[in-house]
Write a protein that binds this DNA or RNA. Structure first.
Lengths: 360, 360
DNA sequence: CCAGCAAGTGGGACCGCTCCCACTTATTTC
DNA sequence: GAAATAAGTGGGAGCGGTCCCACTTGCTGG
């Protein structure tokens, strides 16, 4: 009866089993071994490890001791198979998006997500899903229950990722709202309100010829910021159509500014829907001989680090980027736990710096 | 004998058991069901799916068809348990490091890693391991074989992460070398050579009073850049000790520059070990009334986007950040496959812009 | 005194896959 | 033509957990 589990006294927990030469195959202890050492059944050991009920104090302690001595670490894969939960969530996003990757935006989201996940036992799997392969992988992961939930960011209009996520039975939390589908669960930033704040600030400081540089039309955040700008300008019965689209990049912002100046030389205030674009716009303004803020005031959006380092420092709309990640993860956890959270809109606020000082 | 596998004809896969609208508890098909539908044993089905040998053409095809019809997706967890491989690797790094998170550095590494992983079947798990909890989690993951390999970045001197990684039997690839331990497998950038390039460029353009702003002493990359600077300056028998330390941030660079100016007003060239610090130094120089590059030339390191947007644009040492991530992942994959790769040092090169033009 | 109950215990059936191995059938080889 | 070899097949034992459930106990209460 060559049963290794009951083999004999020489069966100590395998520090080292001679592998086939290359790598040492360190065999970690299993629950069976812990149970055996503690003199209890595997069931009891399992209950003790998960400290659930129906384990007497002495046995619970014996198991704890045996586990410690053996350096036992539960095998998450086995647990995952048995419970059919993965123990991990995925964060999926396109990797070719300058709005996400051109700056510390993404890193900050990640830090927030990781912080929230840190309290749970969930691991974070990252999927950059812009390539076709990447998409397929995400689809497979979603269908195979390899993950307990998904966070999706940077969704554009008609993004196949959205449809993919809608088809799965795994909880999905969106970062930002999609333009087309209406999502059940999402965390967004008050883009419209923030943009309105920016435009109102310009108006309040006496600017009367406002232009805006906004992002691509297939991003909800972009459209919302555009709306916010228009809200404020229209409220003053000023023309709200001095608007150029760019791609959230520095160069794009500069080019848009140049176009705006050509069309409307009397511009005295600019709202750019990202700090990078604002920064580019400032270069274009300087190149055109305009002084900032004397001739033209500039307000950005994001409050990235760069905003503190432009010359003059950039007045901008601050959004809680880490908070976005944190709330997304928190919402996902609640969803996984069976709760029914409600969508969250995070507040934005204006940070006034030199590029657009307030009314004196 | 109540064997569920041969239970009866009413045992079909539950595709249409739940309504089309409210996707709930969708039971995905198992290999058993595929096998049954294809009229073969599970063994054959398994072989067919993994297209290994010993499957006749007709059966292979039957399995493929059945799998397609059932929308079969293999359960990675079960596979992981059976093969005792995880199917994923982890990228671990501290999340409180401005050198990693203050700029798009980290995102770029990630894109490189993801691109390399995209060719394999490996998933990427991200662990931000600066908190004590995070460290413990990483340790558990390493011991539980939940991961097939680890990439470690941003290791500082005496970092517990290093010891943690050394104790595991899972392959470990380092991004950058640690200062204390000597790593088996790592991918690094030629920091020393790059810094030398920077200093030599300043010298070649006629600068004779060089200072440097370098990073913290517990980072190997930082020390190496310092060395590279010293190499070049010492070769010209010029003083190589006009050096201040900062923390890779803009503010730190500005403060260091101020200190340097106070100590050595005759400075006519500055090497800053990061673009952010260079950018801060430029602000300090302007504040002190120095013209760039007429009075003082400035060279940075990294070639981040910001370098193109400073005024004047920053001459800097370009390093292949995505390449770093890509090579790390590639090396890890080779390690997992049982190969024995050799450490890699990626080349750096100088990008000349306005802040330090070349010799005329 | 025995049914009734709660706490505690361990046997064993899963979870869904891989892979070894005994076995059948077709193809060589001497 | 028998033996050896190759190709194909499916049974079944794991992988390392979870968890249901039948089965002791020790107490309570009628």
């Amino acid at each position: 009866m060559p049963d290794p589990t009951t083999a004999g006294p020489d069966d100590r927990h395998g520090e080292e089993s001679s592998g086939p030469g290359a790598a040492r195959a360190f065999r970690v202890a299993t629950l069976d071994e812990v149970a055996q050492r503690a003199g209890v059944s595997r069931s009891v050991a399992s209950r003790a490890m998960n400290n659930s009920r129906n384990v007497s104090a002495p046995k619970r302690e014996a198991v704890a001791r045996a586990a410690a001595e053996l350096g036992y670490v539960p095998n998450p894969t086995a647990r995952a198979l048995a419970t059919s939960t993965a123990g991990s969530v995925v964060l999926a996003l396109p990797d070719d998006d300058p709005a996400l990757f051109g700056d510390p935006f993404f890193s900050q989201v990640l830090v927030g997500v990781a912080a929230a996940l840190d309290r749970s036992e969930l691991n974070l799997t990252l999927m950059l899903a812009s390539s076709e392969r990447g998409r397929e992988r995400l689809a497979r992961v979603l269908r195979s229950r390899r993950s307990d939930g998904v966070m999706l960011m940077g969704l554009r209009k008609d993004d196949p990722l959205g449809r993919l996520a809608a088809q799965t039975d795994v909880p999905v939390v969106l970062g930002g709202r999609p333009l087309d589908a209406d999502a059940r669960w999402y965390v967004d930033v008050d883009n419209r309100g923030g943009a309105r704040l920016a435009a109102e600030h310009l108006l309040r400081s006496g600017r009367r010829h406002l232009a805006a540089i906004v992002g691509p039309v297939d991003l909800q955040a972009s459209v919302a910021r555009h709306h916010g700008f228009a809200d404020a300008v229209a409220a003053e019965r000023l023309p709200a159509d001095w608007v150029e689209h760019a791609d959230f990049t520095y160069e794009g912002g500069a080019a848009a500014m140049t176009r705006l100046l050509a069309a409307h030389p009397e511009i005295d205030g600019v709202f750019a829907a990202s700090d990078y674009m604002a920064s580019g716009a400032m270069r274009a303004l300087r190149a055109a001989g305009r002084r900032i803020p004397e001739d033209v005031a500039v307000v950005g959006f994001d409050d990235l680090e760069i905003a503190r380092h432009t010359e003059p420092p950039l007045t901008t709309v601050s959004q809680p980027i880490r908070g976005l990640g944190h709330e997304m993860a928190t919402m996902l956890i609640r969803l996984i736990d069976g709760d029914t959270p409600t969508p969250i809109i995070l507040p934005t606020h204006l940070v006034v710096r030199g590029s657009a000082p307030g009314p004196v």
